[in-house]
Design a protein around this nucleic acid. Structure first.
Lengths: 265, 265
DNA sequence: GAGTGGTCTAGACCACTGT
DNA sequence: CAGTGGTCTAGACCACTCC
């Protein structure tokens, strides 16, 4: 076993058994190098492993700190139905049920919310998903939701609508109307679209540099979930499609499948 | 921008635009150091980034190679219902519908299959999930499924049954009966259990060292999915619980939620 | 044996954080 | 200012792969 592996294992153990409690600062790399009687780069290699595992957090100029295990936010598809039901409520009851809540699964009042809209031509992937011609103008909506407590974003969302369809209600083209009371499903209702079903497709990949920064993930190690959410209207057309980027260490998905009973049971 | 970042970006670009095609070997670190006019450790830092991103594969003594983008295996909950329906078919039609297929979502004939059974006491987590006393004897079943083509495993499964419940059919205690025709749901039927629903809970984390090896993931970078699958019988009790470890770069989950129609629509 | 990556050293200089 | 981590150098030695 290599020295750096042995050192990493030792520190990992100390974190696991509480010798190094969450929030505690590790000794400086020069001190650790003395303690373990190795060179500084070797210590750094060990510490990089722990960072990749999400166990420690490094802060330039301050030190390395044991990370508190992140509380996972549970995301279930029940809220799709919940949001759909709320669409029919009067306006004042719909307040606080914005796209934020639909796309993050959170219902907190204390969120910082950022939205910006663009018009972009459909690339091949979007064209396939919407069953439209490549180059068709799309309304691209970028959302970033941040808890007031933390600096890190909870999710990054890229949402797409066919521009000419959205334009049937000009209010939908104006980002300053966000967060929209009632969320995307209510927005769709204003242009005559009712959703039939929503498909979630979940993959994982390493975060891009800017995603890592915005989500408060140390660049190496922790992955992000990419949730591709496809909303299909009762007419069979894709009404909205969004990519939700979620931090891999703070997210949990849960889906329940109910099975048909055996006939002779 | 640091040198190693610039070098990584340059190589990333070459991989993206096909200058470095999948399978191609990168120049040796000493050659790259000459080309970019930096030291070898700096080159190594750049290459470690690419490895963490899953773009290259390093083989000790041979070189570094551009990884082919992995084909993702799509995993949907439809097969739970599919497997349940097949339980009632006659034996000869059930062949090839083993736990493997249920837990991996694959139906290939050409799989190498490994199973081993243990008896272990329930820890606190298992006790909570099964609603039993901690320390209750559990039948722990470890599955590892490997495609005949590749050396890497497709999934690693840890499955739990209450030992005394499984023991009602002694054949269920013998690992040499795996792969069982009809899979777990048929095994449960032999002890009088019909499933009502199955809940999938999905998280992601960095792989453990042995998981990375078995799944053919380079230790750093690519995450693993942990799918916790809870199968609940028609009596309301948890019948079986399994943890499925899936490679983050080769797995995609898809779940569709059908929404109720608006009454006045 | 020649070539490859894996580990490790002993430093240097810079950028960021606090006092 | 002192202390921290981030970057980078120029080498050494070992383990693995292939011929």
């Amino acid at each position: 076993m290599a020295k750096y592996e042995r050192i990493a294992a030792d520190l990992r153990q100390q974190i696991a058994d509480g010798t190094l409690a969450p929030g505690a600062r590790l000794n400086a790399e020069t001190e650790l190098a003395d303690e373990y009687d190795v060179s500084v780069p070797t210590i750094r290699q060990a510490l990089n492993m722990l960072r990749a595992e999400g166990l420690i957090d490094t802060q330039h100029g301050k030190g390395r700190f044991v990370r508190a295990p992140r509380q996972r936010v549970r995301r279930t598809p029940e809220r799709y139905q919940w949001e759909k039901a709320r669409v029919q409520l009067p306006d004042d009851e719909r307040v606080g049920t914005g796209a934020t809540e639909q796309d993050t699964g959170l219902t907190y009042q204390d969120l910082k919310f950022h939205a910006e809209y663009h018009t972009v031509p459909a690339d091949d992937q979007l064209a396939r998903d919407f069953d439209i011609e490549p180059g068709t103008q799309m309304l691209e909506r970028i959302y970033r939701t941040t808890s007031r407590d933390e600096s890190a974003a909870i999710s990054l969302v890229r949402s797409y609508l066919v521009h000419d369809v959205a334009a049937m209600n000009p209010a939908l083209l104006d980002a300053s109307n966000e967060p929209w009371p009632g969320g995307t499903q209510h927005q769709l209702k204003t242009i005559g679209i009712e959703l039939d079903h929503i498909t979630d497709e979940i993959t994982a990949r390493p975060p891009l540099a800017d995603e890592a920064e915005q989500l408060g993930i140390d660049a190496q190690g922790v992955a992000v979930f990419v949730l591709k959410k496809t909303s299909v209207g009762t007419n069979g057309n894709v009404a909205e499609l969004s990519y939700v980027i979620l931090p891999g260490d703070r997210t949990e998905f849960a889906y329940t499948t109910t099975l048909d009973r055996w006939e002779n049971a």
